[in-house]
Amino acid sequence: MNLPKPFLTARQTQKVGYAALAGIAVLTVIPIIALFIYILIAGLPAISWEFLSGFPRDGMRSGGILPAILGTLYLTLGTALFSVPPGIAAAVYLAEYAPDNGLTRTIRIAMINLSGIPSVVYGLFGLGLFVLFLKFGTSILAASLTLSIMTLPVIISTTEEALRSVPTSFRVVSISMGASKWETIWRIVLPQGLPGIITGIILGLERAAGETAPILFTGAAFFLPNLPNSPLDPTMALPYHLFVISTQIPGMPIQIQYGTVLVLLTFVLGMNLIANFIRSRARARRHW
């Protein structure tokens, strides 16, 4: 028999294929590394105590970014306030109480939808409900509420996962000793799930801290001479500030832009690092 010899043997095809896949992965990852190094190198020279602790001057063309840093902090805390308690409670419901029925499925579909809604649509909704209908005005309160709804699905799903990973045997033992369901959750399940819950919260807030579109019309201010005095005041925020200085102000010194990016990234990635640290430490420590 004289079969025509294939162009490549199966082995050779595999080699070529693997090389191509590796190439693709490298192509994906290289720009990521490059971007971070680039921002770090370009941004570091801009960082000074004055930059971090001062107010913007000369139409933001010099001075510092303190109001934006603080504003992002306020918004993040506000978001936490409105998303963490209901998020954890909802996760407890899904992990511990929810029956496997149509209503629960509807909840899951709703969560998936919440996590898929474009961020600018959240902005519209926040404008319609919080700013105009509830008359909170363009304010930290309205922006935090808007961000909290956006963050909710992240917190719910990571918390639910953390709770589900707590072994069922603990629950059974606790119940068998006369504890009620809630006592079991409160004394055993929640404490054991805590590192996972905290990780999820931080990951959710990380996203909120970096968002611009949802706060555009709900709480972000272009420039403010003073720090906000109450939750009903608008605030500057790092991501929006970056948008402003990189697109809206002609003749903006590039140094300040790079410095702002670096601070924003440090804020956001710092949260990410903390979350991952908590997660890996808890994994190493737990014995089940």
Partner: peptide, 16 residues
Amino acid sequence: LRRRVGMVFSRPVPLP
């Protein structure tokens, strides 16, 4: 009831 009727399981499950 469960306080008066205790239970021990096949695998030792110490609470965490």
